[in-house]
């Protein structure tokens, strides 16, 4: 009997504790949402009590941790606590079967309904940027030529200044010279990469940035290129709750871009597109290490050759002096 009483007491205590912990979690989450909404001036005169009431109702409706991204209204998105939004956005994504590229002519003009939205973000028109674009145009098909439905497609946007005919796009950008011209802004009449849209995308991503995108936000004009993937259109929402998939190619050797883009295309087809399982592999790390070692040998070899040349020249001078 006594044992039964002790068990009952323990069960009641446990239930009370978990209830209290759940209440504390609700208060914590609503508190952080309130602070976020307050900072973004989105309270519209709402008091803390009203906000808490609405927030409690919202959380009660949400089944534990899994809620489709579509169910989150765009106006509420900035107020979502990032850590919780992370799981909900990740689970919203259907299995991605294919990736296709398209040009982005203005921020926010992305068509809705795609499974994932990706952006090729360049900060400069360097050889490295050209190498990434070449890999994209070689390995990724035009989104209009894909058989997969938009919901199963990862659309990879390349910001561009002008629209060009579909016929011209096919194979046009597979040529290295055309890619260089696309990046150089030489001809005002033809389409070229829009660094302005890329800048706007960076600004949207870096509005209250999460750790996943810190390297993009902290980078300068010489860093990059990058590929950013998100579950929704970046153009429509800011600040953006995670998850993101950021492929920062700053520390990667140019020759490894093909391997990295190929790993990225496999990664977006994973159930959790942001877990980087296919990108941060031993194979990719080893390749980068080998290529960096090979590049760092070049100045050493040049220096050694310089020393040998200098010694030979000095010896020749001494010999001619003796004669």
């Amino acid at each position: 009997m006594l044992r039964l009483l002790i068990y009952s007491f323990l069960l009641i205590t446990l239930a009370c504790t978990s209830e209290a912990a759940a209440q504390a979690n609700v208060l914590k989450e609503c508190g952080s949402q309130y602070q976020s909404a307050k900072t973004a001036n989105e309270l519209a005169g709402q008091s803390w009590q009203d906000f808490l009431k609405a927030c409690r109702a919202r959380l009660a409706e949400r089944p534990a941790e899994a809620k489709p991204a579509e169910a989150v209204p765009a106006s509420l998105a900035p107020a979502i606590t990032y850590s919780h939004a992370s799981a909900s956005l990740a689970s919203a994504v259907l299995a991605i079967n294919a990736s296709g590229y398209a040009f982005l002519y203005s921020r926010g003009s992305e068509a809705s309904g795609y499974g994932l939205y990706s952006y090729a973000i360049l900060r400069n028109g360097s050889q490295r940027s050209a190498a990434l674009l070449k890999q994209i145009f070689t390995q990724v098909k035009d989104v209009h030529s894909l058989i997969a439905s938009p919901a199963e497609t990862n659309i990879l946007f390349v910001p561009s200044t002008k629209e060009m005919g579909r016929r011209k796009q096919n194979d046009f950008y597979k040529n290295e010279g055309n890619i260089r011209r696309f990046l150089s802004n030489e001809s005002k009449s033809s389409a070229h990469y829009s660094f302005a849209i890329a800048g706007q995308l960076i600004a949207a991503i870096c509005n209250r940035p999460v750790d996943e995108v810190k390297s993009l936000c902290n980078g300068d004009e010489t860093s990059g290129p990058y590929i950013v993937t998100y579950a929704k259109q970046i153009g429509n929402t800011s600040p953006l709750p995670p998850p993101f998939l950021l492929v920062d190619l700053t520390p990667v050797d140019e020759s490894a871009f093909g391997t990295l883009v190929s790993s990225y295309l496999s990664q977006v087809q994973e159930e959790k597109f942001d877990d980087r399982k296919k990108i941060d592999t031993f194979r990719n790390t080893l390749l980068n290490l080998i290529l960096h070692s090979a590049r760092s040998l070049e100045p050493i070899t040049a220096a050694l050759l310089g020393i040998v040349h200098q010694v030979n020249a000095t010896e020749n001078l001494n010999d001619s002096g003796k004669k």
């Binding site: 020759s255 490894a256 093909g258 391997t259 190929s262 194979r283 390749l287 080998i290 290529l291 070692s293 090979a294 590049r295 040998l297 070049e298 070899t301």
Partner: peptide, 18 residues
């Protein structure tokens, strides 16, 4: 071995030296 492991990476002079 490198060519088999990474068929997509071109082997240039610097890699051969390495």
């Amino acid at each position: 071995g490198f060519q088999i492991a990474y068929p997509e990476v071109p082997i240039d002079g610097a890699l051969t030296k390495l």
